[in-house]
Computed example of a mutant assay.
Amino acid sequence: MKVIGLTGSIGMGKSATLAMFAEAGLPVYDADAQVHALYARGGEAVAPVEAAFPGVTKDGAVDRQALGPRVLSDPAALAKLEAIVHPLMVDRRRAFLREAEAGGADLVVLDIPLLFETGGEKAVDSVVVVSAPSDVQRSRVLARPGMTPEKFEAILAKQLPDADKRTRADFVVDTSQGLDVARQRVGEIIATLRGKARDAARG
């Protein structure tokens, strides 16, 4: 089983691209969805996050709107949060991979937003970077509810520049050309990787 690492900066269309891989029949691991599950009522992260950051839970779940301002501009607070969440995410990712392999999958996709920033590229077989021109990215992000230019810049500052990600990628999906073009590119990537696997098996 080969593991594809999917990454891309904020506003590049990574979630839509991940959905395209899922539509093509590949098992996909959605990191954002997993964080939501950890933060939801009954989630494993709720109690430890509330203990570390009193007042950020509401109705038994982590209130991300309350948590965000506490960590976004405070590296020490962010490190404390990551120390809670990352081990839980690793456990969930391992369980996903075990289940996919047991199910006979030949390719799986891990959506990892900070793949390069955390050295995660070493744990995958190929990297797909989702990209778009900076003006498209900016307009998409600033259209989100509650987003401000200052918050956008703070998020960007924590992410490897898009140009660097593209350079280090095995494949790039440009989402600025529309969904059909991006979907075609996803199909090409899957076909290429399966072709390489067949060639290696013939070896």
Rank of each mutant, 00 (worst) to 15 (best):
G42F: 09
G42W: 05
G43Y: 07
G43P: 00
G43K: 05
G43H: 00
E44W: 04
P48F: 08
V49D: 03
E50N: 11
E50A: 13
A52Q: 14
P54E: 11
D59N: 15
D59T: 06
D59G: 06
G60I: 10
V62R: 05
D63Q: 06
A66V: 05
G68D: 07
R70F: 08
V71S: 08
V71C: 10
V71H: 11
A79E: 15
H86K: 14
P87S: 12
L88F: 11
M89K: 12
D91G: 10
R93E: 12
A102R: 14
A102L: 09
G103L: 09
G103F: 06
A105T: 01
V108M: 07
L110K: 04
I112K: 00
F116I: 06
T118G: 09
T118D: 08
G119F: 02
K122S: 14
A123P: 00
D125R: 01
S126P: 00
S126K: 12
V130E: 00
S131P: 08
A132P: 04
A132Q: 01
S134K: 14
D135H: 13
V136S: 07
R138E: 14
R140D: 04
R144S: 03
F152V: 05
A157P: 02
L160H: 03
D162M: 06
D162K: 02
A163G: 11
T167C: 13
T167S: 15
T167N: 13
A169W: 01
A169S: 09
